[in-house]
Design a binder for these strands. Structure first.
Lengths: 336, 336
DNA sequence: ATGAAAGCGCTAACAC
DNA sequence: GTGTTAGCGCTTTCAT
């Protein structure tokens, strides 16, 4: 194995000079820099990561804890992970993969052993047992999602409130005056990650602001529940011309149920979904939707960590703006 | 940060004794072991990973290079990754995530810096530019898939030949005597990863062995191609009662095309797919299928690496037996 | 069964 | 602008 002293000898300089050429933490004459670089290339030198971590107190590794539980949409997780790795590499960092199962202990382990300099935790729950651990750790971390008490933590997420509002605004602009939200199962509104409530808030506020009659219907994630909900909505609001769906598994069944009830999409009923692009694209009819910006979440999380590692100040909360993609399921309201 | 000398002092022993308690590489009196362990717990000691790597020449990290390119079925990749991480953790190892983009350089980097002790490379192509790099590296590696020249490399994969045969055997046992294979696009049979050929071989051999008339039809991965293939198959073999599909994207369109041609599945036509379980389960009609055993691939890959790291001999090729799951798309052949 | 001490390869403080 | 050197925290040989 070729080490820094080998490079130093080959280039006729001291080991520290090689180190400084690599780190750029000292001004080096152009001539020396070139000679050292040539020796590095000639010998194929790669610094020993462990030695570096020991001497510098920096491993240049980020730990990434991903959810692998069912119910999480896998492509979104992968996209997020890919973005984290790519962005980390652009900042000279590597990524250590941890599973949710490792829990708080896993975070303590990689932080305590100095294996990782910083941590990214995805799929944060409202009351997450990893939060207390993160608070005691000396290493910076970024959460994807917001816990119940986010004070002092750095959190990133889609701005779900704005996302709820954006759906309504899109439909209002198309002339719709009565829009219902088919939401997540009732229990999600009580516990879980809290985003369901925020969508509902944005939905309600935008409805009020645009003079749109709007009602929120929690809905179980089963095709039967979707069908019952469709029937109930039409019974309650014969004048209904548009819906927003925030409940991934039933997007397709719900659209099918409305079809069976004689409503054509988008002629009679416009549909906007809040779901991964993959699902919106592959539905039998491509759906107008607001997606989770997985890629941007990943790169933002890494950027925030890099700032914290550099001692730069960062905002506690980062809310990414929602983006709505118009597809075939929403259209101008037709006169009755 | 609490270090090994702190623990040693607290327990009234030397640092080396603490180290030996942790590694078990020396016999320690029961009394000493207990005192040391209590000190470790009391102080919350976690060994410094970098220092350990430097002194022991072992990082206890495996590098995992995953494909993120389109065309790879994402849930399979995630399942594989989860299995690798879980199995690695059971062997006291962590997992560093690399993307395919990093290529051969990425492998050299993590191996050269001693960041990783060993490497797992997924989605190996027939002529993969990472193979030469792997051969020059001093660190053990395991490939998922087989390159054109696998000599001296440790490779793991589903036994695609056996998988092709298993499909035919299942159908033969149901009384089918004429079975066609709808395969991958023509070009896949020439380059790519080579598994398409192996499926075809197993299919052909099993057909011959069981007295089943069998023909192989490469097919483009578009719904239109699926429809044309369906028409062609029926024209060529009016007596056709079963097909095997090895082409993920067109599984659903192909089944739909046969339906439109008046063939009911499974009454008139049995269908067996070679595709991820996810796809087989979620098809409009649940499909009898042979899946990629992602989880087993992951754990096997790690086990092989652990053996290599321990200096134990391992087989060059590991072929995992296929497993067929019977669902609703295959049935006993009905008398004409 | 245990201790003492020599490194592992690198960084960064100190010297010039 | 460059060299010297003292650690970083651990493992492992050598010694007893």
């Amino acid at each position: 194995m070729v080490k820094i002293s080998d490079v130093a000898r080959h280039a006729g300089v001291s080991p520290s000079t090689v180190s400084y050429v690599l780190s750029g933490k000292r001004t080096i004459s152009e001539d020396t820099r070139r000679r050292v670089q040539e020796s590095i290339d000639a010998l194929g030198y790669t610094p020993h990561a462990g030695a570096r971590a020991l001497a510098s107190n920096r491993s240049n590794v980020l730990a990434l804890m991903l959810p692998l539980r069912p119910g999480i949409h896998v492509p979104v997780v992968m996209q997020f992970a890919a973005s984290v790795v790519t962005t980390a590499r652009a900042h000279e960092h590597d990524v250590l993969l941890l599973t949710q199962e490792e829990g708080a202990d896993g975070l303590r382990r990689v932080a305590g052993s100095a294996l990782a300099d910083a941590l990214i935790v995805m799929d944060v729950q409202l009351h997450d047992d990893r939060i207390p651990q993160l608070r005691t750790l000396d290493r910076p971390s970024v959460l994807i999602g917001f816990p119940a008490e986010p004070d002092g933590l750095t959190c990133v997420d889609l701005d779900f409130r704005a996302a709820g509002a954006l759906c309504v605004e899109h439909l209002a602009a198309l002339g719709h005056r009565c829009v219902d939200l088919v939401g997540s199962p009732p229990e999600v509104y009580e516990r879980e990650t809290g985003f369901a409530q925020r969508v509902a808030e944005g939905f309600r506020e935008a409805g009020a602001a645009h003079g749109v009659t709007s009602v929120i219907h929690p809905c179980e994630a089963t095709p039967e529940a979707a069908r019952r909900t469709a029937e109930r909505l039409l019974a309650l609001h014969p004048e209904l011309t548009a819906i927003v769906v925030h409940n991934e598994p039933i997007v397709a069944p719900l659209v099918a149920a409305f079809r069976d009830l004689g409503l054509r999409v988008p002629e009679d009923l416009s549909v906007v979904a809040l779901c991964p692009d993959e699902i919106a694209e592959r539905a039998p009819m491509p759906l107008t939707s607001v997606a989770i910006p997985a890629e941007e979440l990943g790169s933002r999380a890494v950027q925030l960590l890099m700032a914290k590692l550099d001692g730069r100040p960062v905002p506690d909360a980062t809310l990414l703006p929602p983006r709505l993609t118009v597809r075939s399921s929403s259209a101008v309201r037709r006169p009755a």
